[in-house]
């Protein structure tokens, strides 16, 4: 199965999906005109992974800013991971926030609150992580 690499745009996240490791990394800011269009390939990749590889999934998030439609897309994406987890698969979501960034920490906690899957909110220092 192929990996998926999306480079960061002016208003979009950088995303890398590693099929062999089962790791999805998302980084940066997201406020595209059409969030659904942007996230579609990532949803497709996840469906293929679930069907073809069917192994564990780790989602690492280093988010700096999300607009409302991107929030909704990410919400749906984690929802899909939650379904997969509830089917008995290993899933881990790591939400990283810069140590001083209370807003992004709070955003992570808002996501965490509603999800019934392993979801941790962790501080990191830029340049030493990622």
């Amino acid at each position: 199965m192929n990996n998926l690499i999306i480079n960061a745009g002016k208003d979009t996240l950088s995303i890398s999906c590693d099929a062999a490791a089962g790791i999805i990394d998302m980084q940066g800011i997201s406020y595209p005109q059409d969030a659904a269009d942007f996230f579609n390939p990532v949803f497709d990749w996840l469906e293929n992974y679930i069907n073809e590889v069917a192994a564990s999934v780790t989602l690492n998030l280093h988010i700096d800013y999300l607009n409302t439609s991107s929030t909704k897309c990410l919400f749906d994406f984690i929802d899909r991971l939650e379904d997969y987890y509830k089917q008995g698969n290993t899933v881990q979501v790591n939400w990283y926030h810069e140590a001083h960034d209370e807003d992004i920490k709070e955003t992570g906690l808002e996501f965490q609150e509603d999800m019934e899957l392993p979801f941790v909110v962790l501080p990191y220092t830029k340049n030493s992580s990622v």
């Binding site: 800013y65 409302t68 929030t71 807003d103 808002e110 609150e113 509603d114």
Partner: peptide
């Protein structure tokens, strides 16, 4: 309703971040 509440809350946090 649950999702809308959640998304609105996150939207507000991000808006605050943007204004800051």
């Amino acid at each position: 309703l649950q999702n809308t509440t959640k998304i609105t809350a996150i939207g507000d946090i991000n808006q605050k971040k943007l204004f800051e």
